[in-house]
């Protein structure tokens, strides 16, 4: 599970940045053609994100299908895993596209991309942990819920955790999470949040692409 939650965003970011830098010539070529700018960039974004998602779904799906997961009750949890993986890919490719569009300097761009990934995957949780420990005298469940929502990696992790038996481990805090995410409303809400997480960087791709000089 960790592999998907941690590696998918990393592959998304790194590959996304790499793609947007190395396809710059291609972009310039296309820009001189009678094509709408947004079409070019969103097309490129979707191209990368979709192919990465496909490779994730096929790469994980086929072996598991052969393994016989379709017959087992795990199929829905597995589906959720793939769904969050897909969401994470879309989110982080969009973030990567933004970084690549904002920074001409490849090294800088790569640096930021890796940092964003590192931040979301590791540092964020570190800060989260520290704030939980520091403010342990206060009621923290709302805060945890909010903090989880704010990081798509954490959100996906919790979504999957709650579907696994291990959710009982989460104890009281988990009960609140379970109450929130366990229901259909919570499920849709979190998928909604993930969609917003996709939407914001995509919107920025559109905005930046309309303003950028080549």
């Amino acid at each position: 599970m960790n592999i998907i939650i941690v590696l998918t965003p990393m592959i998304g970011t790194i590959f996304g940045v790499m793609y947007f830098y190395s396809s710059r010539e291609f972009t310039e070529l296309l820009l001189a053609q009678p094509i709408r700018r947004t079409t070019i960039f969103l097309g490129q974004y979707l191209g990368v994100a979709l192919s990465l998602t496909m490779s994730l779904v096929l790469g994980l799906g086929i072996p598991f299908l052969i393994y016989g997961i379709a017959q087992s009750s795990e199929i829905w949890n597995f589906g959720l895993l793939l769904l969050s993986g897909a969401f994470l890919t879309f989110i982080f490719v969009a973030v990567a596209a933004n970084i690549a569009l904002m920074h001409e300097n490849k090294i800088k761009g790569f640096g930021y991309a890796i940092f964003i990934w590192l931040f979301m995957a590791v540092i964020y949780d570190g800060l989260f942990l520290i704030s939980l420990v520091v403010f342990e005298d206060y009621p923290l469940d709302k805060f945890s819920l909010f903090a989880t929502m704010f990081n798509p990696i954490d959100l996906s992790r919790i979504l999957i955790l709650l579907k696994l038996d291990i959710s009982a481990l989460l104890g009281y805090t988990g009960a609140i999470f379970q109450k929130f995410f366990g229901t259909n409303t919570g499920m849709f809400a979190s998928i909604g949040v993930l969609l917003v997480w996709c939407g914001i960087p995509v919107f920025f791709i559109k905005r930046i692409s309309e303003k950028k000089d080549f």
């Binding site: 010539e25 310039e28 070529l29 001189a32 053609q33 094509i35 709408r36």
Partner: peptide
């Protein structure tokens, strides 16, 4: 500004020939 159809009527030769490799 913000248009693209007009480029139908333009042929452009960029300064440096950079293509997807």
């Amino acid at each position: 500004k913000g248009q693209w159809q007009y480029r139908e009527d333009i042929n452009y030769l960029p300064q440096i020939a950079r293509f997807p490799e």
